[in-house]
Design a protein around this nucleic acid. Structure first.
Length: 671
RNA sequence: GCGCCCGUAGCUCAGUUGGAUAGAGCGUCUGCCUUCUAAGCAGAGGGUUGGGGGUUCGAAUCCCUCCGGGCGCGCCA
């Protein structure tokens, strides 16, 4: 609601300024520091003052006067008047009653449905190597990605969610190596093991052992080389074991993500990127379009290289100095590098490659949604049209920034400038431990590590908090709290409530930090259900539930009267203006905030920053708690005010539920 | 060496394209449950926005410089 009025106000200012002063300025708006100064402010006159060489206040007065005439005849919908403030701000005051009515009508229906033929956004996230259990660093990736998907869908975008599975890389090979050389297990024995234990946890430990095994004696790396070669050939017992491991662990990852409500449309696997020869097609394109060239001298002789940035202009100098300024795409032995494969894959994502995968159904999410997988086998019928994205968002940690840039440059070099501009890297920083937390978990840390602000999680070394362990721990914690409060709950209620709280706490914890913040994980922070946490927000919803429930239960005699009053309120027969102008504006404050979800979602999408929405949910819950303590709804004597307060509570609840849904969190009925 | 990110209250972090008096949470201290759930609320205390310059009517935000921390730059994936 706020978003709409803000936009209208901005447009009115822009039009007026262009018509009157014949200048084009970017009109920005913001919230004034205090409500009595209005709800929208624009500092545009400071900029105009410079250009017109006139005092800002004078211009502001002219604009405000003009806007008032406009507003008076309904020129700016939702705005009652404008005024000059401070040194030259133009402030707008909203029609509070109209805002309230519109916000109530819109609440819960703000999301726009996407057209089936609208441009598609592809979001890739999660992408965990399928050789060990997921840890909370992986969870941060998935939570950011999943929330971003929800934001895009809320705003009416068509979205396809992909999870890239590197099932042929060293990480899987290392676990295969572990089973064969350290444990001397056959495929049959590995299968049996997987059937009777948590396979992803088992591999977690084995992977760490393999890492150590290889570090102890570098000559053992030849074993890895052998395993990788056999995996790449795609048949034989080693390849079969690799496939079994990666597939089993992928299922474990999906089960973990299902606990958090994270869905995928497509699981695209490296094995098919290789098997379908995407690279061959891309290689031809790169050569045809002159994006890469064969180096004939210097260190990179024999490699196919892609000049980068400045190197493109000064390549001869670089060659003379023997400096490697270009990115190697194909090695001198003819094998393709990681970026090469990634360029090929991104050509497919944008629908620029004349090849496609075969698809098969792989997994059914709890909500019934089917995740498809790429396959070398015959295609199953009924697959949606995958790929051909208009925009591509990759949620990958910030260390991958350089390779992502190279892929973008590759697209540009191929002449796909528009696609290159539409390839967005949603970078986030890692999750580490506080040194204290690492020590608690029993990891040996050096003295140097102890002084660091955080210690990195490492699947390779087997150091990390496993996602399922943390979720279990949080649920246990939540269950204890539920038990202490609600002895009357059934077993099913206890579980459902504790589960919702655990997910709320975990997802909020992962999303409240902005992407550039390094999360130093500590159980104390993560397990907290007080203050700026998911449960705090859920609790506000529960409070509204309580009011609505009690209102109906305890006062049946109220009921008929309130129903009649509520009907009058919806019909606009009750003048709510006095309620929204109470001496200190406190009710208006919460109504205004409740009507601002759309504006926050837009900002979150523009900045690709899910934390904005988490922050909003917390602020709204906080605002409600203040309102809740100040206005006792059910004991309010004035029937008109009572139904009004009740409607405000309902409005806040609707918006809290909507904001939580964007974060992938639900609120229980009671907690 | 080159490039990117970060430095804000005791701790952990916000601060939307430069805007009005820099905000939360945690922790500390003081109050509030016989009225809708205290997973809550009210209040107190806590700041040279790493230092120094500059641009601007206006800087936590932009530029320069220094200090401190992190990451990336491979014929690894």
């Amino acid at each position: 609601m706020y978003l709409l009025i803000e936009k209208t106000f901005r447009e009115a200012l822009t039009r007026f300024i262009r018509a009157t002063y014949a200048v084009d300025v970017n009109v920005v708006t913001e919230r004034p520091p205090r409500l009595e100064m209005g709800e929208i402010a624009s500092p545009v006159c400071f900029e105009l003052a410079k250009r017109l060489k006139r005092p800002p206040r004078q211009i502001a007065q002219e604009i405000a006067d003009a806007m008032n005439t406009l507003a008076g005849v309904g020129g700016i919908r939702g705005v009652t008047r404008c005024a000059v403030a401070g040194g030259g701000y133009v402030n707008a005051f909203l029609d509070r009653a109209a805002f309230f009515g519109a916000a109530c009508r819109l609440a819960g229906h703000e999301n726009v449905e996407a057209d089936a033929d609208a441009p598609k956004a592809i979001v890739e996230h999660t992408a965990i190597n399928p050789n060990k259990a997921a840890h909370i660093g992986h969870l941060r990736n998935a939570a950011i990605g999943d929330t971003f998907v929800r934001l895009l869908r809320h705003a009416g975008h068509r979205v396809e969610v992909q999870n890239y599975i590197d099932n042929t890389g060293v990480q899987v090979a290392d676990v295969v190596l572990g089973f064969i050389h350290l444990e001397k297990k056959s495929l049959g024995e590995v299968r049996a093991l997987a059937a009777q234990s948590r396979f992803d946890y088992y591999c977690w430990d084995l992977y760490a052992r393999v890492t150590q095994f290889l570090e102890e004696d570098k000559t053992r790396l030849t074993l890895r080389g052998q395993v990788m070669k056999e995996i790449e050939e795609g048949h034989g017992p080693v390849a079969e074991m690799a496939d079994f491991i990666s597939t089993t662990i992928l299922r474990a990852h999906l089960a973990t993500m299902d606990r958090l409500g994270i869905d995928y449309d497509l699981l695209s696997r490296e094995s098919e990127v290789l098997g379908m020869k995407f690279w061959d097609a891309a290689f031809q394109m790169l050569k045809d379009r002159g994006a890469i060239r064969l180096a004939t001298s210097g260190k990179q002789a024999g490699c196919w290289i892609m000049p980068l940035g400045d190197a493109a202009e000064s390549e001869s100098e670089a060659a003379e100095e023997g400096v490697a300024e270009a990115k190697i795409i194909v090695r001198s032995n003819g094998t393709v590098t990681y970026v090469g494969k990634d360029i090929a894959y991104h050509l497919w994502k944008f629908g620029l490659l004349d090849r496609d995968f075969h698809y098969a159904r792989f997994h059914k999410h709890p909500d019934g949604h089917v995740a498809w997988v790429t396959t070398m086998a015959d295609a199953e019928k009924g697959a949606p049209s995958f790929g051909k994205g208009h925009e591509v968002y990759n949620v990958i940690d910030s260390r991958q920034k350089y390779p992502q840039q190279v892929v973008r440059e590759g697209l540009r070099a191929l002449g796909f400038a528009e696609q290159a501009d539409h390839l967005v890297h949603i970078a986030y920083d890692v999750v580490g431990f506080t040194p204290r937390c690492a020590a608690e978990l029993g990891y040996t840390i050096t003295e140097e590590d102890a002084k660091r602000p955080y210690i990195e999680m490492s699947g390779r070394r087997g150091q990390g908090v496993k996602a399922d362990d943390l979720l279990d721990e949080m649920k246990k914690h939540a269950l204890a709290e539920v038990d202490a409060r609600h002895r009357d709950f059934s077993e099913a209620e206890r579980n459902a409530t504790a589960g919702a709280i655990a997910i709320g706490a975990l997802r909020y914890f992962l999303l409240k930090y902005t992407r550039t913040a390094i999360i130093a994980f500590d159980f104390k922070d993560a397990l907290s259900f007080e203050g700026e946490t998911g449960p705090y927000v859920q609790y506000a919803v529960v409070r509204v539930n309580g009011i609505l429930r009690k209102g109906a239960e305890k006062n049946p005699e109220f009921d008929t009267e309130d129903l009649a009053q509520a009907a009058r309120l919806e019909a606009g027969k009750i003048d709510v203006t006095p309620f929204l102008q109470s001496p200190n504006d406190d009710i208006w404050e919460i109504v205004l905030l409740a009507g601002s979800l759309g504006a926050r979602v837009e900002a979150a999408i523009a900045a690709q920053e899910p934390a904005f929405v988490a922050k909003y949910a917390f602020e709204l819950a906080q605002g409600f708690n203040v309102f809740y303590h100040k206005h006792h709804i059910l004991s309010e004597k004035d029937a008109e005010k009572r139904v009004f307060l009740l409607r405000v509570a309902q409005l806040v609840k609707d918006q809290l539920v909507a904001a939580l849904a964007l974060l992938g969190v639900t609120a229980p009925e009671k907690m």
